[in-house]
């Protein structure tokens, strides 16, 4: 089954003008034998792995920097993780948090794929204790 079924969430960056409804219609229009379920963040696509990946490739052709994706363990509407049964699933807050970060990632992807350089990360340095001592003594 695992080799066959893939459930994948497509998440639209908050900076995109694309709506979940438009995204769902786009996937439907591909005529793939996969189910599509609209969600607050985009949609869930479920079907044989190859078809779901075809859907992803097609979406990325038009919305490369606006739609992000990962697979989901549970099939769509699985009662073991159904909100109506138990309340929100524990990973829900994670999705919300990642969604908030997407505009920065979207922007950074555009930047990187344009071949522009990035700034090397700086190590956060602690304020040297000797300097701190001097500062305290100066204000005595």
């Amino acid at each position: 089954m695992s080799e066959e079924r893939e459930t994948r969430l497509f998440m639209i960056s908050p900076d995109s003008k694309l709506t979940p409804d438009q995204l769902v219609r786009m996937v439907h229009a591909m005529g793939l034998e996969a189910t599509v379920k609209e969600t607050c963040y985009g949609c869930l696509v479920e079907g044989p792995r190859e078809l779901v990946r075809t859907a992803l490739e097609n979406v990325r052709k038009d919305h490369r920097y606006e739609v992000f994706s990962k697979v989901r363990a549970y099939p769509s509407s699985d009662p073991r993780r159904c909100r109506a049964q138990h309340g929100t699933r524990p990973g829900y807050a994670q999705l919300e948090a990642e969604w908030e970060l997407l505009p920065l990632i979207q922007h950074a992807l555009l930047h990187a794929e344009a071949g522009r350089p990035y700034k090397e990360p700086e190590e956060a340095k602690q304020f040297p204790v000797d300097d701190f001592k001097k500062m305290c003594e100066a204000n005595r």
Partner: peptide
């Protein structure tokens, strides 16, 4: 058995209010 619904923002706010900030996110939840 049920789980109270919470959002990401609820978690941050609740931890601030409770005043104990555990390292493990599930404990924050």
């Amino acid at each position: 058995v049920v789980y109270p619904d919470v959002s990401y923002e609820d978690i941050n706010e609740a931890v601030r209010r409770f005043g104990f900030n555990p390292r493990s996110p599930q404990l924050k939840l």
